[in-house]
Design a protein around this nucleic acid. Sequence first.
DNA 1: CGTTATTATGATTTCCACTTTCAATTCGGG
DNA 2: CCCGAATTGAAAGTGGAAATCATAATAACG
Lengths: 143, 143
Amino acid sequence: MKRAKKKVFADFIAQRGLKTTKQRDIILDSFLSSDRHLSIEELYLKLRTKNPNIGYATVYRTLKLFAEAGIAREMQFGDGQTRYEHVGEGEHHDHLVCTRCGSIEEFENETIEQLQAEVAASRNFLIERHRLELYGLCGNCRK
Amino acid sequence: MKRAKKKVFADFIAQRGLKTTKQRDIILDSFLSSDRHLSIEELYLKLRTKNPNIGYATVYRTLKLFAEAGIAREMQFGDGQTRYEHVGEGEHHDHLVCTRCGSIEEFENETIEQLQAEVAASRNFLIERHRLELYGLCGNCRK
DNA sequence: CGTTATTATGATTTCCACTTTCAATTCGGG
DNA sequence: CCCGAATTGAAAGTGGAAATCATAATAACG
């Protein structure tokens, strides 16, 4: 899994004539061994504990590269911060976002996807992507 | 329709001990006679053509008031600007956002809502609100 | 009607997340 | 090992939104 993504990124780097650098390796490692849905800030702070010499801008730039390479996806959950989640092959899921503790769960529902496709078809709309988020209280916060 | 919303806002103003002002009237009129999904910038520019003396900050503040009063809803479609759409009583709908021309269509689908509720229930998650957006090409842009 | 306390306005500043800049550094093909 | 090209990171710049604050407008009261 981690290997596969490192390969994908290495290939991407090579194909674009970019360079392999210490920083990119470190950031990729850190990203791959992180929770899903980490914000840039969070990843940056995590990195800094072990690598105090990596700059903010580099983290931003590198995460953008991950997104271009297809191993990460940018997400916005309305808290003003961009988060990056891991992307698996052709995988798709939606989110349950807790408005109290900020936790993010994922879910998949094939029927919902089909209905979306029907709605789009009926309007002659060609779906490229979608986002579905349910905001509310997670199990823990309801107690 | 417009009358009803003006009444709602007037009541909201009164109940909160706020004041009726020229600017609020103008902004409300302009908002109510606008396309749905107008950005603050767009509304501001529209206003300025007839009322060059209304400030940016006032538009921001007033739209927030509309949202609090329940006659408008804040929306983000990822273009970096906050948009406000009209809200009708208990009405809810989702969006089809064209990634080429930026047009925004609305749709409703009761079945999707039900499925969302089921997903949430199965996780013991209490939904407060949700957002569902389909991004892609609208009928016009597919031609 | 005026007075006056309170709220609103709007120019400006501040904030905050993010992006760009640019000189110095690092990478990697030859 | 060298050199052109890419990368880095500190710092400055952006842009949208929020806060500040002196001035203006509103509405309740006499």
